[in-house]
Design a protein around this nucleic acid. Structure first.
Length: 859
RNA sequence: GGGCGGUUAGCUCAGCUGGUUAGAGCGUUACAUUGACAUUGUAAAGGUCGGAGGUUCAAAUCCUCCACCGCCCACCA
């Protein structure tokens, strides 16, 4: 009766429910005495977000580590949560309301926020349910949301402290303004996109000025040249008056090293209110600030006849006016970096605005030291450099947003502020009395904080800070922060700065950076372009375990990788292979139960069973033991791909291909079961569902002894003696199969194999195994002519239907080449003198072996 | 303008603290198929590790330069 293939559908959900119900996701409820703590703070997905492969990679990595450390007997905590995601969420709800014809300004702040909360209640669980479906073993009893009361308290506490220390200040500065979102943005929230545009050469009296943004010319308050530019030296310090599209204008000419002599004509029009470089020059030279573009993306009153026009309209109109007055010399095609809003993708305007800023330099200093000293290790290491570069060049962070969804800034203004110059006060609740004017009426700042302010506190706010909780003491600093490189600055850097500031400790010891998942064309997956793979339908089709493996195996930290459905299908096949090994094991157990009295697995490990362990038995024991050591080492050093790969190879190409086959001839059911159970344990962190399902198949559905909490196998020191012997046997079998295939002997046809040589006795002892594995009848003694091959200390001859010796010729040729290269190497004195003795010795041995082999082949 | 990554079999990628005759999966080819598994098995073909120099007894691996592709940062109007 053919066993059915593994069908993950209907298996995974009940298993997850049992895991969750068991309470073991919560480290407080884990059995046994556990002292060492292991903790991961889950990067909180956006509360309204939907699961994509980026989440899936992160969840897989974090779950593997958490499950591994849980099985190691540690207090393993993986703390989940969601982020309110200020702009992203607000945009989403705004769009939704827009469809009903409602604008947020019509309904007002309070009502709008009610809508957002309703939305949050409705969809907030969707993302966490999706994370559950990936098998995430995180402690949902500790789940948090960045706008939970206790996290809001943390935000307020942090803000007030920074404010009182003078690290947060309010000022008028040039910021990026998104007219769509109606808010200021931080530098990081702006993405520069190369766009084809034009370079306009405009006459400014004696000069010609090249600009990409003619519409800002009505905001010009100076002209600038480079200090070394001889061409214009005579004008520096002078004022020039000239004709413009809007009449006569007089501007000072300044010199500044920011000006590039080579670009355009070497003369720059300076618009301090609408360009970062010009702003800087304006500050330096105390230039007038003329704001001609407003927050509504329209020209302001200061723009004269262009007032009220959209920026793009004004541009066209000004160009036309210039042309009419013959002030436009030429227009060249030009590509420029145009700033866009990271969230809504509309073009943002640099403009001057009154915002809250955070002084970053003092916070960056210890954050740099933490990575430099190795207190925080970034994997892969190359991101250190990127991190240092950003930290060293850090600029003040614009933290206020003109949004409604978020943490309202805890700053209060006295009503007499303007009149009596009262100072703003940072406080959670309305202050009782103004220190300056003794007034009692205050207004809270209407702005909210940048989303990343609250996420920056995430590792410790979720553990109870600012309260001194037991969790904080036990689990902070966390062990690993798992994330992708695109939020290294947004989030990781800020967490480090905040944690060092408020906790005087690093937030995590290791930063594990995974790559982005690309589509099969090597592009970032995009939902709007439809190039993404949606993990959930894929998981339904191939199983969650297959998805997890395909995201971890064969990938490298920090390296983006392509994912194709074929790859997922490949790992589905592997899972099915494991499933069928399970079928086989269960069947074997029914057919031949373990030896009477039940031999303990421990005894098996010791090579017990009264010396009845065959070579294959001893081999698989050694291999399993090696595997345990290898996987453990690699998981402890976060080398997940290597660990998973080793498991894959072992399960398929050693356990299934060899040991299971041998079981059909020489069963050792107790050892088979032992090996199988070890594999289930080792594989569990990677493929939790199928392994738990197989475990249940053996032991029934129970909470207490779930695979999830089994102790991680331990390896012991060993000599790989059986492995060496068995490898010889494998080589012989492969060599025989090879000869058979070359001569196109049908796989089922049984041939006679004659052997001769030193190893004959050993091979004859293994005769039953070889007979079956190679489909031959091993006989000793008879030898005639050149052998068909040489392996395991014997020459062998296959009695072929019609023997051809071609393959021997080929082998001889390759062997001769090999010998030549070895001889060449050994003839080199530099090598024999300088290389380690063991290496030289090894090479000599190889040469001798190869020569002996050749000798036997050509006999 | 600065910086990072990639370039290894037809495709997708490992390997890179220098040391067997460079690996895997998919694909291809040949053969097989009722007893765990066709989501399978056995075997084969396929690579001068992007190019050029250099260091070394020894380089896919370390150094220098170059080319192409991708990305990040940055005030070139």
């Amino acid at each position: 009766m053919a066993a059915e293939a593994y069908n993950p559908l209907g298996v995974e959900q009940p298993i997850y429910k049992r895991w969750e119900a068991s309470g073991y996701f919560n480290p407080d409820k884990l059995p046994g005495k556990r002292t060492k703590a292991f903790s991961i703070a889950m990067p909180p997905p956006n509360v309204t977000g939907e699961l994509h492969l980026g989440h899936a990679v992160g969840v897989s990595v974090q779950d593997i580590l958490t499950r591994f450390h849980r099985m190691l007997g540690e207090k393993a905590l993986w703390l989940p949560g969601t982020d309110h995601a200020g702009i992203a969420t607000q945009i989403m709800v705004e769009r939704l309301l827009q469809k009903e014809g409602i604008s947020r300004h019509e309904i007002g702040r309070e009502t709008f926020l009610k809508h957002v909360w309703t939305w949050k209640q409705k969809y907030g669980d969707r993302i966490t349910d999706q994370i559950r479906s990936l098998g995430a073993s995180c402690d949902w009893s500790r789940e948090h949301f960045t706008m939970d009361p206790n996290l809001t308290a943390a935000v307020q506490k942090a803000f007030i402290q920074l404010f009182n220390e003078g690290l947060i200040y309010r000022g008028e500065r040039l910021i990026h303004w998104c007219a769509r979102c109606q808010t200021a943005l931080s530098d990081l929230e702006v993405k520069h996109v190369q766009e084809a545009g034009h370079l306009y050469y405009i006459t400014y009296g004696p000069f010609t000025v090249a600009t990409t943004r003619p519409e800002t010319k009505v905001g010009d308050t100076a002209l600038a040249v480079h200090p070394n530019d001889q061409r214009y030296a005579k004008y520096v310090g002078e004022k020039v008056t000239f004709e413009t599209e809007s009449g006569k204008l007089t501007l000072p000419v300044i010199e500044d090293k920011l000006v590039d002599k080579e670009f355009g004509t070497g003369v720059v029009k300076v618009t301090p209110a609408h360009d970062p470089a010009d702003w800087e020059m304006g500050e330096r030279h105390h230039l007038e600030m003329k704001q001609v573009i407003g927050e509504d993306n329209r020209m302001t009153k200061l723009a004269g006849k262009y007032t009220g026009m959209l920026v793009t309209e004004a541009r066209d109109k000004i160009v036309a006016d210039l042309q009419a007055k013959n002030l436009l010399k030429k227009i060249e095609p030009h590509t420029a970096n145009v700033p866009h809003c990271d969230r809504c993708n509309s073009v943002v305007q640099p403009l001057v605005s009154k915002q809250w800023f955070m002084t970053m330099k003092p916070l960056a200093k210890p954050a740099i030291a933490a990575v430099k000293s190795g207190k925080i290790q970034i994997i892969p290491k190359r991101f250190d450099k990127v991190y240092f570069h950003w930290m060293n060049n850090i600029r003040d962070w614009c933290i206020s947003r003109q949004l409604w969804w978020g943490h309202q800034i805890p700053v209060w203004y006295c009503r007499n502020e303007a009149e009596k110059k009262c100072k703003p006060v940072a406080s959670v609740t309305e202050p009782k009395k103004c220190a300056t004017c003794k007034g009692v009426h205050f207004v809270q700042d209407q702005d909210t904080l940048d989303t990343w302010f609250s996420s920056g506190l995430w590792t410790f706010s979720t553990l109870g800070w600012p309260k001194a909780t037991k969790d904080l003491e036990t689990y902070h600093p966390t062990s690993v922060m798992e994330t992708s490189w695109d939020i290294l600055f947004f989030w990781v850097a800020r967490m480090i700065m905040f944690s060092l500031k408020f906790r005087k400790q690093v937030p995590f010891k290791t930063v594990y950076i995974h790559g982005l998942v690309l589509d099969k064309n090597g592009k970032k997956m995009s939902k709007s372009k439809g190039t993404g793979i949606d993990p959930l339908p894929m998981a339904e089709k191939y199983g969650t375990d297959a998805i997890r493996l395909s995201l971890i195996l064969g990938t490298t930290p920090g390296q983006d990788f392509r994912l194709s459905e074929e790859k997922i299908a490949g790992y589905r096949n592997f899972i099915n292979k494991l499933w069928n090994i399970g079928n086989f094991v269960e069947r074997q157990q029914k057919l031949s139960p373990p030896l009477g009295g039940g031999v303990s697995t421990e005894a098996l490990r010791e090579g017990g069973r009264g010396g009845r362990n065959t070579l294959a038995d001893r081999w698989i024991q050694e291999r399993t033991n090696w595997l345990i050591a290898d996987i453990t080492k690699n998981l402890k050093t976060n080398k997940l791909s290597e660990a998973g790969q080793a498991l894959y190879d072992f399960v398929w190409h050693e356990l299934a291909d060899w040991y299971v086959e041998i079981q059909k001839i020489q069963p050792n059911t107790a050892l088979l079961i032992d090996t199988y159970e070890t594999v289930l344990k080792l594989l569990h962190p990677f493929a939790p569902f199928v392994t738990e399902a197989l475990w249940e198949k053996r032991y029934g559905k129970m909470n207490k002894d779930m695979l999830m909490i089994q102790a991680w196998p331990k390896a012991k020191a060993q000599k790989n003696t059986a492995t060496k012997e068995f490898t010889k046997l494998q080589n012989l079998v492969v060599a025989i199969r090879n000869v058979r295939a070359t001569h196109k002997v049908a796989p089922h046809e049984k041939l006679t194999l004659n052997i001769a040589g030193a190893g004959t006795k050993t091979i004859l002892a293994l005769k039953p195994m070889i007979d079956v594995l190679a489909r031959v009848e091993v006989m000793s003694g008879k030898s005639a002519g050149k052998p068909d091959g040489h392996e395991a200390g014997v020459n062998f001859w296959l009695e072929l239907p019609k023997a051809s010796q071609q393959h021997v010729k080929k082998e001889v040729a390759s062997l001769q080449q090999y010998i030549q290269s070895l001889e060449h190497k050994l003839a080199n004195e530099h090598f024999t003198k300088n290389a380690p003795a063991a290496v030289v010795e090894g090479e000599r041995k190889k040469l001798a072996e190869a020569k002996a082999k050749l000798q036997q082949l050509t006999d």
